[in-house]
């Protein structure tokens, strides 16, 4: 477990003992994440894995500046974060496309609001849609797309703005196993080209290891903590299909899964208990 920090490059995202608490309806306070300490170096790909409900999305919201931690600090490129994180592109877990805009307009909007002329924005949007495999779906409205297709439009919408930090919350969640791998390879290809800092949430440990430089494990909530941080030393460029056959991959998978499994069981027991007492 090592905090890899390249001193020459600034840290893109750093959470320093960030604690997040929600006020519940009955005035109780629910501590979702406690003292999370996480640093993503410039150009680093970090995957977060943890049992459902542990606070992965919460952590991304904090990094995006949508949620203020109750305690602790957030710094972006070594500057304390105030308000929204303007350097980040955020691919949300829930549907976030504008339902009244077509796929191409959804993608182009990111440029249009920066003042790019519409015609030029549309051209680039079409190119992005093509690169996520949806070139032929430009004029569809979100409700005419499948869940996986919507996620890919969302990816294009975020990437077209060329953010320095990429926050992704289970972006390949609704995709089938094969498309997941294709999209994973595409993401790696795009990332290799300009090395953004990536914070990638997934519930698929194999996917996390195959994609990331580091895999971070969170414990089951409440008061979830970061309980593990593994460096993935697999060589790049990687191919997601092949990397899974690597011996090193299997060893790492077994090691991380040993820790994760326990948390998953704990998380499951807690959520069923909570459901039972209500």
């Amino acid at each position: 477990m090592n905090q890899a920090m390249d001193k020459a490059k600034p840290t893109a995202v750093a959470l320093e003992d960030a604690t997040v608490a929600f006020r519940l309806a009955d005035a109780r306070v629910y501590t979702a994440v406690e003292r999370a300490r996480l640093a993503v170096a410039h150009g680093e790909f970090v995957a977060i894995v943890g049992p459902t409900g542990c606070g992965k999305s919460t952590l991304l919201n904090v990094a995006a500046g949508l949620l203020k931690p109750a305690a602790g600090a957030v710094t972006i490129f070594d500057q304390p974060l105030a308000g929204l994180n303007r350097d980040a592109g955020y691919l949300f877990q829930a549907d976030a496309l504008f339902p009244w805009k077509t796929a191409i307009d959804n993608v182009a909007i990111g440029l249009e609001i920066k003042g790019t002329p519409r015609q030029k924005a549309l051209e680039q949007a079409q190119a992005w849609l093509t690169s996520v495999g949806l070139g032929a779906f430009a004029n569809r409205y979100p409700h005419m797309l499948s869940g996986g297709q919507r996620k890919r439009v969302g990816l294009a919408q975020v990437l077209i703005r060329d953010p320095k930090i990429l926050l992704m919350d289970e972006p390949f969640g609704p995709l089938d196993a094969q498309t997941r791998q294709v999209m994973g390879n595409l993401l790696l290809e795009l990332w290799t080209a300009d090395r953004k800092a990536v914070l990638f949430v997934t519930h698929d440990l194999e996917e996390a290891i195959a994609l990331a430089d580091r895999v971070v494990i969170m414990s089951a909530g409440p008061s979830s903590r970061i309980i593990g941080d593994w460096r993935v030393e697999l060589p790049r460029p990687r191919d997601i299909f092949e990397v899974r056959l690597d011996k090193q991959f299997h060893e790492l998978h077994r090691e991380i899964w040993g820790v994760l499994k326990e948390e998953v069981m704990k998380g499951y027991a807690q959520s069923t208990q909570a459901g039972g007492t209500n």
Partner: peptide, 11 residues
Amino acid sequence: TVLDNGRMLGM
């Protein structure tokens, strides 16, 4: 979520 997305896109 749509609103947050708009904000994150820089609106």
